[in-house]
Amino acid sequence: MKNNTLQENKLEANVRCKDVSKIYRQGDIEVHALRRISIEIQDGSFVSLSGPSGSGKTTLLNLIGGLDRPTSGEIYLSNLRIDTLSSSELAQVRLDNIGFIFQAYNLIPVLSARENVEFVMQLQGVNAAERKERAYEILNAVGLNGLENRRPGELSGGQQQRVAVARAIVSNPEIVLADEPTANLDSKTAKNLLEIMLSMCKERKVTFIFSTHDKLVMEYAERLIKLHDGEIVSDE
């Protein structure tokens, strides 16, 4: 497999977007989701992308995560250009370097909490004993000990999101991309979740990039990038 080279040289988490545009077509109408965005995100940062709906924050997140391809421009993870890779190669990049946390429907419903966490490791080919050990460890770290064998349907929203965080972290990715991770949570649960993510970010030197309009998330963020109509309006 040619992806082996990627696996061997883990990337420096240095996200770089260069003149990235994304245009969706809806019938005859062109929607400019992103207009020539250039941005760099350093290793180990806790970044929030915010802006009103339709501002392009989710699109940008998807592009960085290789879930979608830009209409024009270049995207680099460290020094690897990802916008030109095949979908299979992208899958490998995501598997090795990126963790995802979504707003909802985050977990595989037919797998238990532990199996969800083990899932990515399984795809990576980690052996069973190590998988199990790491899964227990990380679930313990996010405060879910005792609930390892429950299915997502048997967990509360906050617990589900913690499983998602655990799963995103467990494979030691360079970047975790989180799309509105707190949207369905009450503020106390959300705060708890953010604490966990921040500590993971610092302990493990993982870059967290959020797309959010939750004030709470922005409070926690070290860097606030605001988007409007597909353009960056502020970066602080």
Partner: peptide, 12 residues
């Protein structure tokens, strides 16, 4: 779910 599985690194 299929989208999520792909996001997690599952190949087509």
């Amino acid at each position: 779910e299929f989208g999520m599985l792909q996001a997690l690194g599952m190949k087509p």
